[in-house]
Design a protein around this nucleic acid. Structure first.
Length: 420
RNA sequence: GCGGGAGUAGCUCAGUUGGCAGAGCACAUGGUUGUGGCCCAUGUGGCCGAGGGUUCAAGUCCCUUCUCUCGCCCCA
């Protein structure tokens, strides 16, 4: 029989990878919670229509990366490729906007995109998402960005760069697009790389982002979106920056920062790292006024971000695994039950540790205690069984003493003492 | 969807012109009949990714295929 393997691009997480996920989730609950954000959970499976309408029919995500399939009655369902659409659907469907004018929500969990896996990219990956709904003011944008920066700082991630841009709005963006297209049309097209010749028509903003040196040089003097913002967008962007400056959040303005999802307007931002391979974006987000209405809700504004947990995990400083307080070594089979019950009593007293299942040699039990990293080893052999005691050995100093087993509180005290 | 790299023990990897599958680490047991780490000894562990071909003989050469990995596209 051949063994069944996991699906390409999906992962099994054991410690320390699984504990890294837990660390990120705990930090998220703490930091986002302090900012008044509440955790919500939405389904992993949604109607395909939801993503087609929110992310954009023409985006790569919708065109070729979604896990889409019919259910048993022929309805088209999709494994969520991102979280914002589902959160907004829940916001609209549950009429959250009728209960409160501003909603602060966060969520995390698995997302699915059918792409070729590589470093920092999996077909099932995990994101942390925050959404601030119902606030159009620039200070809302600023709060979200500052909160993201604080979150990453809490985790101790080094050498991250924050990039900031404004994409303008429905008023000023079309004019910029025309200006950019005109500029590109005036270039020597043959000098551009193959990808850029295609991008000129499919997604002209992307040409500005090309890594090929010749392309970079050619678009050096391309018009910048930030020079084409309308008065409203320019004021908004300036106010956002004022808060970031005051909060000492270091950022760079990147007029070439493009977001791949159609729904972004005005403020967009991205956090990148140079230490995790080609997929360098750790987090990204922006404002999406109009999207809620597009999903059948009220004309409420919104802003949020997504943070890639696998990419973040590549950057998390390692932490030492927690060490158990004790290990009960049983030397005589007749003591196995007494050992189990002793361990239970210690756990009831708030300590952590394990007891052997089989009576083996002293050497192998001590090795087991050492391997487990136990701070104290409890020895239960024939002698102790006969007189009702247990020997407590301090694994760091090697010192040991005998304690009566009858008083669990006393045993626990001795273990705590040995455990430091 | 398109490129590059790699598949040999649980892990990291050697393996010569084709000639009996190896090392280190890890794991188990012992060196000490009740004392861990360091050291030493012994042991467990392999369809050499899979299938086909050439050959007296294939981990090694040829073909096919699968998987992993890095990159492109794109994104978190």
């Amino acid at each position: 029989m051949s063994a069944i393997t996991k699906i390409k691009g999906f992962a099994d997480l054991f410690p320390p990878d699984s504990t890294a996920m837990l660390r990120m989730e705990s930090a998220a609950r703490e930091v986002f919670g302090r900012h008044g954000y509440q955790e919500i959970r939405t389904p992993i499976l949604e109607k395909t229509e939801l993503f087609a309408r929110s992310i954009g029919e023409e985006t790569d995500v919708v065109q070729k990366e979604m896990y889409t399939f019919p259910d048993r009655k022929g309805r088209s369902l999709t494994m969520r490729p991102e979280a914002t659409a589902g959160v907004l659907r829940a916001y609209v469907e549950n009429k959250v906007y009728a209960r409160e004018t501003v909603s602060k929500l966060f969520t995390f969990g698995p997302m699915f995109r059918y792409e070729r896996p590589q470093k920092g990219r999996m077909r099932q990956f995990h994101q942390l998402n925050c959404e601030l709904l119902g606030a159009e003011e620039p200070h809302a944008d600023a709060e979200v960005v500052v909160m993201l920066w604080d979150f990453l700082g809490t985790l101790g991630i080094p050498d991250l760069a924050l990039e900031l841009n404004s994409l303008g709005c429905r008023e000023c963006r079309p004019a910029y697009h025309e200006a950019l297209k005109a500029f590109l049309a005036g270039l020597d097209t043959d000098a551009l790389c193959e990808d850029c010749r295609r991008r000129m028509h499919t997604n002209p903003l992307r040409v500005l982002d090309c890594k090929v040196p010749t392309c970079k040089a050619l678009v050096e003097d391309a018009p910048k979106i930030t020079d084409h913002l309308c008065a409203g967008c320019a004021d908004h962007f300036a106010a956002v920056r004022e808060v970031l400056d005051g909060a000492n959040v270091a950022y760079t303005l990147n007029p070439r920062l493009v977001r791949g999802l159609d729904y972004y307007v005005r403020t967009t931002f991205e956090v990148v790292s140079g230490a995790i391979g080609a997929q360098s974006a750790v987090a990204g987000g922006g404002r999406y006024d109009g999207l809620i209405a597009q999903l059948g809700g009220p004309d409420a504004p919104g802003i949020g971000f997504a943070c890639g947990m696998e990419r973040l995990a590549l950057l998390l400083p390692p932490v030492q695994a927690a060490r158990p307080d004790f290990y009960v070594a049983v030397l005589d089979p007749a003591g196995l039950t007494a050992g189990m019950l002793l361990a239970k009593g210690l756990r009831d007293a708030g300590l952590g540790g394990e007891c052997a299942f089989a009576a083996k040699s002293m050497k192998s039990q001590m090795r087991a205690a050492d391997k487990a990293g136990a701070r104290a080893c409890l020895l239960l052999g024939g002698d102790e069984l006969a007189v009702g005691t247990v020997v407590i050995k301090n694994m760091a100093t090697g010192g040991q003493r005998s304690v009566s087993r009858a008083d669990v509180a006393e045993v626990a005290r001795a273990v705590r003492e040995a455990a430091g």
